[in-house]
Amino acid sequence: MLRQTLQLVASGQARDLRAMAAALNVAESTAAAVLSDLVDLGYLEFVAGDDPTGLDPRCRDCPTPSLCGPAGRRAWVLTHSGRRAAGIPAGLPCATPPAGR
């Protein structure tokens, strides 16, 4: 299931967690657990949509700071190991996602 998850991410066939859970035929919580394990194993990297107002003082001057942190923006990306395990040779593009879902 872990390898299949990496391949689904790499191919763009499942771009959101619910589509991933459906493709793996598991609950969304399990798909999230699989992603979490893949992060621990170094195949995926968690990229959070953190509120940048905590990162740099210049953001305090932004007229609309709260626009930067909308909810539900957790995302994961394939690491170098993830790309290798998913069978993507370095430098080659990932497949374009198919039309529809």
Partner: peptide, 11 residues
């Protein structure tokens, strides 16, 4: 550039 594959969570 090199492509980066990703997956995200949608509410």
């Amino acid at each position: 550039s090199e492509r980066v594959a990703f997956i995200m969570e949608m509410p």
